[in-house]
Amino acid sequence: MSDFTPNIQVFCCHYTSQQALAVSPEGLQADGFPAGANINRVVCGGKLKVSSLLKAFEDGADGVCVVACPEDKCHNLMGSQRAAKRAGAVKKALAELDLEPERISMHHLERGFHQEFVTVAQEMEQRVKAMGPSPIKGEE
């Protein structure tokens, strides 16, 4: 199961994604960003909806990462705390559905480009490879 390319959806706020998006997808991958990872930018972590994160799984994501500002240094004050709460709600929802809650993770990063941004997606890729593809992908 470890040879598949996991579909990883990374949701990040405008500030934490700025630099990552400035670099081309090839440039990002050269830095080690997983090939199956895709960046979804929202204006603020507080704008992220529980339903959008669940929809990513519905649409075939094997793993979802949420990246927003440091908890105490959010550009919009509470946005990243709200994002963390919503990621937590999805974690609970996955558990309720008997899916691995580890398929979603929350990260707080400083704005700008940092290697951690790439690491976040790499770690999810490793985790998902160990767990195997999302069991809901099945036959459509």
Partner: peptide
């Protein structure tokens, strides 16, 4: 409305998992 959206998503995921979309 928001909770309808969330429940719909959860049920779709749950049913896909059961192989009964």
């Amino acid at each position: 409305e928001r909770e309808v959206e969330i429940l719909a998503s959860m049920l779709k995921v749950g049913r896909k998992k059961e192989g009964k979309p």
